[in-house]
Design a protein around this nucleic acid. Structure first.
Lengths: 343, 343
DNA sequence: CTGTTAGCGCCTTCAA
DNA sequence: TTGAAGGCGCTAACAG
């Protein structure tokens, strides 16, 4: 009974490989071999070791293993808001892709703050993650690239091409176009747009897509019908109110994302404006909950689960030194019940 | 120029403490001291070391540090569904409480599957997490307790008291009572209940609270008004449909959680039943999105963000060996617009 | 104040 | 097939 009570780690700390070796009457190397299946080991020793492992309830210390091997089998994942359904879905995709690979995601949030993002990434790197998945955020390409010098990086919502980095963005401009085009096809001509936070490229792109669709249809855009939101519900309600108060008539709203649409929907409800009878509304994202709004929301779907899966798979390849190709997932129009033909 | 190319870890792997020591012309111990601020170090050496650190862009390898110190400064967090808004909020609370403490959450999902849960926890333990936060799930108290022999554990949605474990549950029975009572106070007498998955204690408890409120008010419960859901939206729509088809009249629905209420709301919308004019509806949870449903949902609030924070704080204390007290957060009725006085 | 000496727990040549 | 030895990067006595 060796008194190891001096160890910081409290009692529970399971047995060590060396202890297993001793109780099995073999060397540590042999135990390691059995664990990692290197060279052949005699059946008798193998049995003894396995018995010892069971008896001591031995679990290899992954930390030590990582230190030795130089790979931690962890991927850092930087999200922005853990509480956003948008990120949650992406995370789920990452998790799905990683499950069973031996890699574990180490998650941190940057809260859309470049300084915080960089800080969190540095911490993850210090923990020796074998790769980084950066989900959106406001980091510059330069910074991202600099990180990629330490460890492979795949980033969504960024554009970047470096030896060990990969980034991809869904085509927000096209998405904005698709949404607006849908409204146009339904006969709408006075179409309002509630933008996202214009500090984000995606918000700018969706606005551009909206304008392109209008222009292409020969519909004169009215700048008073473009008001800014912030990708969150409260921004949606405020923007919708501003729109309604401006006195410029319109028959449809394209909201920069579903959350904005939810907010707008509430503002409309407050004023007794029916959707879609009085006004059509289209969102962007297709959050899971958009299937259950009243009425269910028409929107442009971003397959975030797929995006997460794709990011994780690509990182897996990068880490293995394989070339990582990316087939960028496509946006699609999901017609539900908040849009209808005019008149 | 030492060729370390043999190392598995690719080039980027930042400089080692020893290298810093060498380029600064001091011993490794001195560098370590400067980093961790132990004993005093002469200004000259300190400068030299700091210069070397900057020059080599040195970051201590947290893995090695953890191995040596016997603490990984990571907490394992077991959630069930990363994509559920309910868990997302709790996670956010955990994150908030941990931010700035030096601890990092290592997150894994058990998907409400006891085997998977145990498996994930074992992996986290193998990674030497210093503590575990278990968010709900179906693990038995025995299992939980067994894990707590290795490492401090705090669990939400469980009941457990062990030397190094702490668990707490919000009072679901009371919540069910509060919800039903609210409806009763509004004059409703025929109140339907869509339960959660009855394999969960919370679902059973909410049902019990519902029955108690009814009994206390002298309202004869009609078992045909109790139908089962599964805590998810689709279960809500199916249950509502069953209720509507059963032909037993009712004027209000208490849904076991908000997601179930969303589903029920959709079913109602499909049939042209207005909320709250024709039927009152109350949920349970107060998910962030319940503020933006049409109309905004009346519900029983579970302060999940607080729960997450509380769990993390308690674990922090347990790990420090301090006694962890728990003031269990309280449920509260949030009256919005889906319930109204009868007639 | 500072360097030397031992490891943390594991893996991996290198000999035997 | 197996064991001994060395070391991953860092910290913590213990001497000076």
């Amino acid at each position: 009974m060796k008194t190891k009570s001096k160890t910081p780690r409290e009692a529970g700390g399971s047995a060590t490989l060396l202890e297993v070796a001793r109780t099995a009457g073999v060397s540590a190397a042999t135990v390691s071999r059995i664990l990692n299946g290197g060279t052949r080991v005699s059946a008798s020793k193998r049995e003894a070791v396995e018995a010892a492992i069971a008896a001591l309830n031995f679990k290899p210390n992954l930390l030590a293993q990582s230190l030795k091997r130089g790979r931690s089998m962890m991927f850092g994942v930087l999200t922005q808001d853990v509480d956003s359904p948008f990120f949650a879905e992406t995370l789920l995709g990452v998790e799905a892709a990683l499950s069973g690979t031996g890699y574990e995601p180490l998650i941190a949030s940057g809260h859309w703050n470049p300084k915080e993002e960089a800080d969190r990434i540095r911490r993850l790197l210090a923990r020796q993650v074998d790769g980084m998945i950066v989900l959106f955020g406001r980091l510059s390409n330069d910074e991202l690239q600099r990180f990629s010098e330490h460890v492979p990086v795949v980033a969504t919502g960024h554009e970047l091409r470096a030896p060990r980095a990969l980034a991809f963005r869904l085509d927000s401009e096209l998405g904005g176009y698709i949404a607006t085009r849908h409204l146009l096809d339904l006969g709408h001509r006075s179409i309002a747009h509630i933008t996202g936070d214009l500090a984000h490229a995606d918000a700018v792109d969706r606005l551009a897509g909206y304008r392109r669709a209008l222009a292409e249809a020969g519909v004169p855009g009215d700048e008073r019908l473009v008001v800014s939101g912030n990708f969150k519900e409260p921004g949606g309600v405020m923007a919708a109110n501003r729109l309604l108060d401006a006195g410029v008539p319109f028959t449809a709203i394209f909201a920069a994302n579903d959350q904005t649409a939810y907010g707008a929907r509430l503002a409309l409800y407050r004023r007794g404006i029916r959707v879609p009878e009085d006004l059509s509304l289209i969102g962007f994202d297709d959050l899971p909950s958009s299937l259950y709004t009243t009425p269910p929301l028409t929107t442009v779907r971003q397959p975030m689960f797929e995006v997460g899966k794709l990011a994780a798979r690509s990182l897996l390849k990068l880490v293995e030194g394989e070339p990582a190709d990316v087939e960028i997932p496509e946006l699609s129009l999901v017609i539900r019940e908040t849009t209808r033909r005019l008149r």
